[in-house]
Design a protein around this nucleic acid. Structure first.
Lengths: 354, 354
DNA sequence: ATGAAAGCGCTAACAG
DNA sequence: CTGTTAGCGCTTTCAT
């Protein structure tokens, strides 16, 4: 009952040919007499034979498999990235091994090791921190590795990312043009290079034109909302809030509502990372739109080049983002004391008197 | 320069032991003298040796790999599902091969075939239609297969899904309790079993209490919005809109705005599939919340049981959903002619006169 | 154009 | 406890 699956030998026997001929028919390697080929194909169909790639790879020493590591598959940004990669890979006849690191460097290293176990032809990694732990292992295994979305520190490597600095600066200039002077900038963690670049862009664009206040809000929605709500509940309210990732933007909406502030009159809200729902909320949220699909395509393209033997020095690619300007960052209709700042000043005055 | 990667033989030579001993140390199969084990580990470290699972699987005939097929990795629902699966799999020491079918049955069959090529110990599939094409191939390869989220037709098999009927009925009753009498039900395609079940639940709950109108809106956001906008622009406006998947819900918000209708006064909006942003839009959207994480865990649990040799008859699991009731389905504050229905009647009267 | 035989890297079975 | 040997399923010489 538990007879083994048909192997290439089973097929060869049934077709009355050698295993080599079966292999040649299936892989179209050497030419085979039409009649034999037909017999082989009939045997394959009858047995429901499916070749074992493991064995095939072992012998032929070629792969057509690439590994992918992303921080979190439940995050739509990474989901879209992986979807784009998968499509590109399939067009080149490659299979993808997709794993997630759970935003944990230790996991990242562990997953990378596991991937190497499969002898992939290459790796694409979205690092969860500013380093790729286990990079040495990939190097030792002589597997080309492309970093995507984030710039890892250390030795130069191929990176495909987005021009965070320019995009953030553009958005900051848009806020200033709208009359905003005190921008609260909220990111998951200011330790991530990506976030740092965005902050740098904002600082460069606002120098002398607006005050920038930084806030770390953590990786989860709950944390983002809590940190922002706490900040908005005390102290001088900003007249603009720039969230540096999609989760923080969602958290900001909740926190702003909890604080009783109005968008865009009390403060403008803009985010890095554009998602469909941002058009549906009210008011619609302005956002920096990243070319996720192209990010995937370009990363795959680089990897294919490396697999193909390209030995040029590592190249860093920066893709431009676009600004999706919507109502949340429209200029405020200011009237003295009707803004949040005005109300805050009034309240503070009262508190000082009492 | 292009010397081969270290193999188990390289390690054995360096450590001065046999390959069997290296294998035993690395897999903790048979006990090995501490001193030899130490030598082996030193050699492994020195060489940066990483075992080749392909070869190991080939010889040992055991896998610890499962294949996963989902319709679209960019859809957060499937992303969360896969993330849950991955976590469960890792706890059992399994690796996942994740592929997507692009909502195309032909692709689904092709991807399934490719997965079988890897000799997985099992498969978890979210079918994109009411059949799993290539099911026979999996059966022939004697690979246990668990269907998730959707109920494929044909021979009975293990399925882990959600109780669509009950959840949709609960939500429909909520609408009726709120005074709604004309429910427009919008789903991607009424051909999907999942959607049919939800429609059945709604019909059962509304029988005699409210009118139900069905609308197919397609799979993409743009299509959903267009179809809904077109429907809302003509004919008798419904007093409730029940969207049957997350994409349609987002499309509905746009369509409702375009039609100039107010939620919940003109019509209530409720959706199947809950997402974080639904709490952030205004008004917040009521939704059926599916236990995605449990869906993944249960699917994995069934697969592990089957891999473990469980030969019990196929089991179909139905997980309960929860209703997240928010403002979009609050009872309408009705006043004659101020509702959309009233305005429509007025306008119709005028048109009839002219 | 075809077949026989060797061997990819590993583990299982068998000796010792 | 350790080493030797055979062989997993496939592709690739090398003969024919």
């Amino acid at each position: 009952m538990t007879s083994k699956l048909p192997s290439i030998r089973t097929v060869a026997n049934l077709a009355g040919v050698s295993t080599a001929t079966v292999s040649n028919v299936l892989n179209a390697r050497r030419s085979v007499a039409p009649e034999l080929a037909a017999r082989v194909r009939a045997a394959v169909a009858e047995l429901g034979y499916i070749a074992d790639v493991g064995a095939s790879r072992l012998r032929s020493r070629k792969s057509a498999v690439a590994g992918v590591v992303v921080p979190d598959l439940a995050n739509p940004f990474f989901g879209e990235f992986v979807a784009a990669l998968e499509q590109a890979a399939r067009q080149d006849g490659y299979e993808l091994l997709i794993v997630s690191s759970g935003d944990d460097p230790a996991q990242e290293a562990a997953r990378l090791r596991t991937l190497l176990t499969w002898r992939p032809a290459g790796l694409i990694v979205i690092p969860c921190r500013d380093m790729i732990a286990g990079l040495d292992a990939a190097h030792a295994a002589r597997v080309p590795l492309i970093a995507a979305d984030r710039f890892p520190e250390g030795p130069a490597m191929d990176v495909v990312a987005v021009d965070n600095r320019a995009a953030a600066a553009d958005m900051a200039r848009h806020l200033i043009a709208g009359g905003r002077r005190h921008i609260l900038v909220a990111g998951a963690s200011l330790g991530i290079g990506n976030i740092r670049e965005r902050v740098e862009g904002i600082r460069a664009a606002t120098r002398g034109a607006a005050e920038v206040e930084l806030l770390e809000v953590g990786y989860t929605l709950a944390d983002s909302r809590a940190h922002l709500a706490e900040r908005l509940a005390r102290g001088l309210p900003p007249d603009a809030l720039f969230t540096l990732n999609n989760v923080a933007t969602l958290g900001a909406i909740g926190a702003i509502a909890a604080a009783g502030l109005r968008v865009p009159d009390d403060l403008a809200l803009v985010g890095f990372d554009d998602e469909e729902w941002m058009r549906a909320v009210s008011p619609p949220v302005s956002a920096v739109h990243q070319p996720v699909e192209r990010l995937g395509q370009e990363a795959w393209g680089r990897l294919m080049a490396r697999i193909g033997g390209d030995a040029a020095p590592p190249r860093q690619l920066r893709l431009p983002c676009t600004l999706e300007l919507r109502d949340s960052s429209a200029p405020a209709r200011r009237s003295a004391d009707s803004t949040a700042l005005g109300r805050w000043a009034q309240q503070t005055r009262k508190e000082t008197l009492s």
